[in-house]
Design a protein around this nucleic acid. Sequence first.
DNA 1: TGTCTCATGTAATCCGTTACATGATTGG
DNA 2: CCAATCATGTAACGGATTACATGAGACA
Lengths: 180, 180
Amino acid sequence: MTRTTQTEMAVLGGLSVAPMTGYALRQAISDVLGHFWSESFGQIYPTLSQLESQGRVIRNGTERSSPYAITQAGLERLRELLAEPVQQVPPRNGLLLRLFFGRQLGAEVCASLVRDARHDAVGQLAGFAAIREEIASEPDTELEHPYWLLTVSAGEHAARAAIAWADVALAALDENSAPT
Amino acid sequence: MTRTTQTEMAVLGGLSVAPMTGYALRQAISDVLGHFWSESFGQIYPTLSQLESQGRVIRNGTERSSPYAITQAGLERLRELLAEPVQQVPPRNGLLLRLFFGRQLGAEVCASLVRDARHDAVGQLAGFAAIREEIASEPDTELEHPYWLLTVSAGEHAARAAIAWADVALAALDENSAPT
DNA sequence: TGTCTCATGTAATCCGTTACATGATTGG
DNA sequence: CCAATCATGTAACGGATTACATGAGACA
């Protein structure tokens, strides 16, 4: 019901792809979902313990590094969670907040902020190309690929839009600081 | 230093445009900055009290509804805050998380999620047109307009990108669910 | 041998929303 | 006169990060 279910969803979802340790789960989330999701250890480990006590995940061995695997009950729980309505997070974009009050900063400083943002977006685009390759090189999970690629495409569209916006914004700021 | 400064920035920034009550500030933030920022009363009122005790804002009268105004010290503080590095918030996109694990949901359900997102984006675009008009109808704040329009433009680019992505995503999902 | 990565866990802390309480003012 | 809006404030709660503590195994 609360936002905790979001972490549960990410954890169960990750384990639905392949069994993993909590550590590996964190790695996978930050590598592949990094552009639209994040989880910290402080969330992952308690969630795993809780899910284990509910029989939704199990560990094959008792060893320290034995991976968690999702159970049938876990799969059902995952589907239940995925079907819940998407909750919007209140937006907080520090860059746009600064630009909105940009008159106090001056056009020059604003322009450098926008250039930074453009640079980040270009880097992200390169990152998405790498993720595409990584996905293509995993034949085991072929059935999931169409869905994974949807999220990559979303990131690419957003990054390209950010770049296009940055270009028009820089042109506008230039006009502003250097009147004819 | 911490994230509290973000609220301080928004409050001082708002008052740098025009004196306002806390209530009106909240209104203004949700109306004009709504697509990239949000503040709740639980944040605004304590922040205003704190800023007042620091001499960064003052109230003209002692009446209940007398607006807060920014002082010189407040303006300096605002510039200081705006110059701080932009902090990235950890991303959390519930829609993309669901799509990533979309195989568990099925192509049909995913498609309806994407259609909803497309619908939202179309609505946002219309909202931006309204904000543009609202801004144009305020000659008092003309010097701020170029900066305000940067943020509107950012929203429009993002919304258009969301629509374009939704269209390709829907095509891909369709292909998926209805094999030739 | 010593450092790095793997691996788990928890306590402190923070930021922020939600919900509640209160009351003045306005307009139908 | 009653409902809606304006206006302020605070307490409770919750979700998440950060930081710290611990220790095993790898490898150079």
